[in-house]
Simulated assay, not measured.
Amino acid sequence: MTDQIQLGVVGAAGRGMGYQIPATEDERVKVEAVCDIVQEGAERAQEAFDAEEAYTDFHTMIWEASLDTVLIATPVEHHVAQSVAALKRDLNVLCEVPAGRTINECRDLVEAVNQSSGMFMLAENDVFRREWMLVAELVSDGCFGDVYYARSERVTNGKDHIEEALWRRTWRVERNGVTYPTHNLGPVGRWFLDDRIERVACAGSGHHHIDPRGDPYDQEDTVVMLGKTENDCLIVHRQDILSERPAAGYRFELQGTKGCFESAAHSDDTHRISFADRNENGRNWESLEEYADEYLPECWQNIPDIARDTGRNGGDYLVFETFIDALVSGSDPAIDIHEGLDMTLPGLVSQQSIDSDGEWIHVPDSREW
């Protein structure tokens, strides 16, 4: 693509607003239309994005507005249907996470991507977090040796967050298992290079909380998913959004034959790393930041100041910019449909496993569909 990209944003007054800075600052992009189901929100977003048109219906927008690209920032129950509709019109799609709610939905999405001339990219912003990209560079350079274990956690008291937007309840806690995996499995997947989770087993801690209406959550308070990769590595993921506790956010560990990494446990802590050929044979910790001068990716070395005002400390900016870069250059998207499903499907299969008393269940490879 050489001309200015004509962008439509759906969910523009909600999550879509997180992309307002890159969408309006990038001269390669013109926000042609915005869409929100609430008229007032659509009008507010039209002003914020300096858009030509505002809609309250997505299908009307993609048929009537002059678009070649759409950003889908709606609740997850709309991701696949809206992505498929846009791809059938050969529009490029940047879609929020997770990719879909069911395996059948994900199959429909792959079919639409395969039959469309439009590009699809999953907007997993945590893949672009500064610290996780720095770890990925160290892995790629062999500093960890062969990685064979990772642990990730998403731990926060999210009950109030769910009540503020009840659609979150529908897909986060009205089903059991790992319902929101991509912010964790995205970065971890980059650390395991060409490997992918091939089977999972999932178990929970039981039900100990009720919602403000006195109804129990279908989601167990803490769920833990074990994942085995095609190369027989182990990935452990914990999701807990119901327990009474201070938020700990996202936490990670990575272990290889030559080194290990542990993310900060709390806001006043530091990300730490240790390698066998340094620090008294790997028996002491260093700050991850010690490696930034040598290994920080170029996209973070040159990131503009305005990017830090976007979500994930710049992650929203970079996920949008890499998508636009791919459209302009004709290169592959940074997170294509298959990588996007590598971080989505294990969570969906975990929901089958927890319903089957922790049975190990195969995770399909979308590349074979």
Rank of each mutant, 00 (worst) to 15 (best):
P216A: 06
T270S: 11
G158W: 07
G256V: 11
M1S: 11
R367N: 10
M121Q: 14
Y291N: 03
D26C: 05
E321F: 00
L341Y: 01
P98L: 15
R107M: 06
E25T: 06
V147L: 02
R190T: 13
R44P: 00
A54N: 15
G11L: 00
V328D: 05
C202W: 08
E164H: 15
D309M: 02
T310E: 00
M133Q: 12
T179H: 08
W360R: 02
T222C: 04
W171I: 08
A123T: 12
P304Y: 04
D57S: 14
L341A: 11
L288H: 10
Y149G: 03
C95I: 15
F275A: 14
N92C: 04
R283Y: 05
F58R: 14
R190G: 01
W171M: 07
T24N: 06
T229F: 06
T344G: 00
Q351D: 05
A307C: 07
R130P: 02
R245N: 05
S287P: 07
T69W: 03
A73W: 06
I306P: 01
A13Q: 12
M343T: 02
I335L: 01
G347N: 08
V319P: 01
I361E: 14
I103P: 01
G118N: 02
W167H: 14
G100W: 08
I37Q: 09
E64F: 10
I354Q: 06
R245C: 06
E280H: 07
G227Q: 01
A12S: 09
P346T: 14
G249N: 05
L327A: 02
I103Y: 03
K228V: 09
Q255F: 10
L242V: 02
D50I: 15
E27H: 07
Y250G: 04
V31W: 07
E47N: 11
D3K: 10
D336F: 04
V319R: 00
R245V: 11
V93I: 09
N176Y: 13
R129N: 06
V147D: 13
E198N: 04
S117K: 13
D146M: 14
D365V: 10
A123F: 09
A51I: 13
E163W: 12
N92H: 15
L94V: 12
G227H: 00
S116L: 08
V349K: 02
H78M: 10
F58M: 06
T179E: 02
M121E: 14
S243F: 09
C143I: 10
I162E: 01
A136K: 08
D309A: 14
D293G: 04
L67C: 14
T2D: 13
P364G: 03
W63T: 15
G358H: 05
K88E: 15
A334P: 00
D126Q: 12
V93E: 02
E52K: 12
R101T: 11
